[in-house]
């Protein structure tokens, strides 16, 4: 399963991810990371049965943990299958099938929301 870890300015320079991995022994696999002086955001894959202990380890160190369990939803009535969403997705959720239909691999979705703004037909939504 995918989780998103948010770190505020006060902990962004501390090695809380490393600490949490050592403490729990869980294989936290980072797929996206963004850091600047005031904020850190990491998207990572973890074994589902270890969510509770990883979450505790991170939350105890001041991070915020969100489970990414509401991936992108495509409204097939609104979608005209143009493919505008394809090039803005950082993790390649969208692709063309051989017949130029849109295929959605929502397991990859990190819920960044970039495609929502790109879609000209308001056919994409998060959290449904």
């Amino acid at each position: 399963m995918m989780i998103k870890i948010n770190m505020a300015a006060d902990i962004v320079t501390t090695p809380i991810l490393a600490e949490a991995i050592i403490e729990t022994g869980s294989l936290l696999n980072i797929s996206q990371a963004h850091f600047d002086p005031i904020h850190g955001e990491v998207v990572a894959e973890i074994p589902s049965d270890q969510l509770a202990k990883i979450r505790d380890a991170l939350v105890n160190r001041g991070a915020e943990v969100v489970v990414l369990n509401t991936p992108i939803h495509r409204d097939e009535d609104e979608c005209v299958e143009c493919g505008a969403c394809i090039s803005v997705c950082p993790v390649k959720v969208f692709s063309f099938a051989d017949d130029w239909s849109i295929e959605v691999d929502s397991d990859k979705c990190i819920q960044c929301g970039t495609c929502l703004k790109m879609c000209p037909h308001n056919a994409l939504a998060l959290g449904q």
């Binding site: 005209v80 143009c82 493919g83 505008a84 969403c85 394809i86 090039s87 063309f96 130029w100």
Partner: peptide, 23 residues
């Protein structure tokens, strides 16, 4: 084809028109 080269970088492309509907 899904991507083109700009200054040695492979950049993903998106149509804004629907080829499926055009067909």
């Amino acid at each position: 084809s899904g991507s083109i080269d700009i200054d040695g970088k492979e950049v993903p492309t998106s149509p804004m028109s629907s080829f499926k509907k055009s067909r």
